[in-house]
Design a protein around this nucleic acid. Structure first.
Lengths: 346, 346
DNA sequence: ATGAAAGCGCTAACAG
DNA sequence: CTGTTAGCGCTTTCAT
């Protein structure tokens, strides 16, 4: 490994001079500079970032801790973060908490031990409102940007997220505009703030349209295709006369679609279906799915912008980015003669 | 920041003693140990991995450099790598080369500057057979595990990949077994070794069945849905009388499906279609797609196993993991009376 | 069982 | 413009 001393010896100057040249510090004779640079080049010198960090206290290291960076949303965010980080001269550490609270804690300890300058955190939903490790992050002055909906115990952190409630209400309004009055909702896990927000958006839109949420139209699904399918079977079993179904996520919607299509129902002729999230390929789904496009990459960029502010010691504020309704083939006008619609009108 | 000295002072012992305790080194009085541990705990001591690394030369840092870690395959691999790395006491750096050669080089320089102990590399296909930066990696003794098909300039590195040629020939054999004789192939970019291997597998299966590759049935598609669609339009325009179409990837297959379905053709009644890669949701595609399931997570695990060997200075060998044919609804028996089939039989 | 000295590779602070 | 000194937080080596 080539060190500064090696170059210094070769060039017949002090280590300090070499250090200055290689950092482009001022007050160096042009001739010296050229000579040192050439020798460094020739020897194939590669600076030791660790040693620099040790001295300057700048690790130029950021980290993201998330339950699963392979999911379509997070992986796009990681892409944006790593890309921007690189351009800003930082490196990005990736750590998976696998939805396990103690694993998340272990990841965070690692991150502390690496003396990262900033942390992007997708917190695991917890039941317990107190989270000592998060307090510790705060205490130690780690700059934290929370990604996604912020649970109560993340209050002190800046956050960046899509406006789930708003986007979800856009979906509901779209269905209402198509004449649907009985819109079922396939809900996500109650521990997930994102899922909650989407349900909130649905309720809000209904309320604004002068309708009340009918509990018999709300089904607990979950996060997976399977759970979506199960909830839809239940919906059918219970003879819930909905003309439209709004799902908490595209995955759940796909499960619903499977069941509906298997029943011989046509989308959107017999029933409309909407998802949320615009996962890749929801476009090329059996019936191209009306959904919400989350600005994933933009979320990453926004998060990094926040981080830059924090790194400069500037105040940073949380952001809600608007998500966009994408109307495709799975939603259409409500069947005109539908009993339930009539009833609602009456 | 609490350092060893701080603990030492509190405990009335030397820094060395504290260091020993915290590393579980032998020859420490039980009483001292207990006292130091308790004080460390109480002060919230977090070791400085950088400083440790500086002294011990073990950075406990690994890195992955890939064109785009958000693609479905790579993101799963990253998941496996980060997870295993964590369990082995390593952290993982993620760096995106964005399909740009000079960016890849910049990423690799960063990785060198961080003194990572090992590197997972998804190389960008290059036309030029020489790649100085890769030679440098080799020279500097960085342990490298190549992911995916290994281009010629990566020869010196251990690699882990799915056996694309074999899996691709499984697809072709499946179509042959269904009675298809005129099987079109939608090929990928000629620079991609993976795409090449898949084409090879197709040819090999045909040859083994006593058939020759008909160049008029091979269409250059690419990597995207769009390119798949374009190639399929071309296929139709040229009146290529194929009864089955094998695509280099699921994305390309989806493009093909769009065109075929738009033409009013039924899958698999009129024409069979197979993809490759088993991207999420190819199962819930308009017509569930026959495809090849790549053992993505397993690839990550295998790569890490190789890395462990390298880190121990042990020899490691390259691995080809078998990929599995997944038969779904898009492939079926060849239309019995088909002219082309008849012609082949005659 | 514990401590003192030295140094990993680099740079801040000060001197000349 | 260039060099000297000191030290970042830790551990190796050698002493006691």
């Amino acid at each position: 490994m080539v060190r500064l001393v090696d170059i210094a010896r070769q060039a017949g100057v002090s280590v300090m001079t070499v250090s200055r040249v290689l950092r482009d510090a001022p007050d160096i004779a042009a001739s010296t500079k050229a000579r040192v640079q050439s020798i460094a080049q020739q020897l194939g010198y590669v600076p030791d970032v660790m040693a620099q960090a040790m001295r300057t206290r700048n690790t130029r290291l950021l980290a993201i801790v998330a339950p699963d960076t392979s999911d379509p949303v997070t992986s796009r965010i990681v892409l944006a973060l790593a890309e921007r980080a690189h351009d800003l001269g930082y490196d990005l550490l990736v750590s998976q908490s696998r939805h396990q609270i103690d694993r998340e804690e272990a990841c965070l300890r690692r991150v502390l031990a690496r003396r990262v300058e900033g942390l992007f955190l997708c917190p695991i939903p917890r039941l317990d409102p107190s989270a000592p490790i998060y307090l510790e992050l705060k205490q130690r002055g780690v700059r934290v940007v929370a990604l996604g909906p912020k649970p109560p115990f993340c209050e002190p952190f800046v956050s960046v997220q899509a406006d789930d409630a708003l986007a979800s209400s856009k979906v509901t309004r779209h269905l209402l505009a198509l004449g649907h009055r009985r819109i079922a909702f396939l809900a996500g896990p109650s521990t997930s703030p994102a899922a909650q927000s989407r349900f909130e958006g649905y309720r809000r839109a209904l309320r604004e349209a002068g309708l009340e949420t009918d509990d018999r139209l709300v089904f607990r699904a979950g996060e997976t295709v399977e759970e979506g399918a199960r909830a839809t079977v239940q919906l059918i079993d219970e003879r819930a006369t909905a003309t439209a179904i709004q799902a908490v996520s595209d995955l759940v919607a796909m499960g619903a679609a499977r069941v509906l299509l298997d029943q011989g129902l046509r989308l959107p002729h017999d029933v409309s279906l909407a998802g949320y999230g615009n996962i890749p390929f929801s476009e090329v789904f059996r019936v191209p799915l009306t959904t919400v496009r989350q600005p994933k990459y933009q979320l990453g960029l926004a998060a990094m912008t926040c981080m830059q502010a924090l790194l400069l010691g500037a105040p940073a504020s949380s952001h809600q980015l608007p998500a966009e309704l994408v109307i495709r083939a799975s939603t259409g006008p409500a069947p005109p003669g539908d009993v339930s619609t009539a009833r609602c009108h009456g």
